[in-house]
């Protein structure tokens, strides 16, 4: 579904991605872990072609993304739920939800979405900036799903979400994955990643330093400790 080969990217002179290689098979859920600042978000941006400085090869759904206009990536079926949610705060919930669609559907056309995210339905005319953190994350996921993606990049979807709602988001991502949508998930919470993902990559200083089944991480405290510097509770 997604194949990333020798991906490099720079912010000015600093060489942030130093040859990232990874792949995600159709329907697979893959985790991308790593300490703060190792380049996880940058990897996702580069995949979405939002890093002008990026070089390397990205193949999505059998076709190369190299040279594709950045705004054409999402319509190909590759969506992103970005770190920090990045809603358009001064647009309404409805405007946010339908932003990626060429034409706004009638509210009934969104019934699938509302079935999954009932709270959004009551707040369609509210400005997105006035939603609670949890509701904002729901909207960030919903506006991505509305575009019928084949794959979604989740960048720390549970960051800053109260623990009670974390389980809900975890469940939603699993359900999304079950419908056949491939998932690449960046997470600080290793437990969440292990629970959702089939396979895990770990990044260090702009490179992938570990790849293995999620089970392996669960059973091998050393890897977790060595690359992520934390203990798995």
């Amino acid at each position: 579904m997604l194949k990333v080969e020798d991906l490099h990217a720079y912010y000015g002179k600093s060489h942030v991605l130093r040859g990232v290689n990874l792949h995600v098979k159709p329907g697979e859920a893959v985790g991308l872990l790593g300490r703060n600042g190792v380049g996880k978000t940058t990897t996702m941006k580069a995949i979405m072609r939002l890093m002008p400085s990026a070089s390397g090869h990205v193949t999505f759904d059998g076709a190369p993304l190299d040279g594709v206009d950045p705004f054409r990536v999402a319509p190909l079926g590759l969506g992103i739920v970005p770190q920090g949610r990045r809603l358009f705060p001064k647009l309404t919930v409805y405007e946010n939800l339908c932003l990626g669609l060429a034409k706004d559907p009638p509210a009934e056309g969104l019934s699938d979405i509302f079935a999954r995210f009932p709270r959004l339905k009551e707040r369609l005319t509210q400005l997105a900036g006035t939603l609670s953190g949890g509701e904002q994350q729901q909207l960030a996921i919903a506006r991505c799903l509305v575009m019928n993606p084949k794959m979604i990049l989740f960048d720390e979807p549970t960051e800053g979400i109260m623990p009670k709602l974390v389980a809900q988001i975890r469940r939603q991502i699993r359900e999304i994955n079950k419908t056949g949508i491939s998932v690449l998930l960046v997470e600080q919470n290793i437990k969440t990643a292990i629970e959702i993902c089939d396979r895990i990559y770990i990044m260090e200083k702009g490179e992938i330093c570990f790849e293995g089944p999620a089970e392996a991480l669960k059973n091998d405290q050393n890897i977790v400790h060595r690359y992520l510097g934390v203990a798995l509770r």
């Binding site: 939002l50 950045p70 990536v73 992103i80 990045r86 990626g100």
Partner: peptide, 9 residues
């Protein structure tokens, strides 16, 4: 950036 990521030209 996010607008572009959502497919806005």
């Amino acid at each position: 950036e996010m607008a572009i990521a959502m497919g806005v030209p």
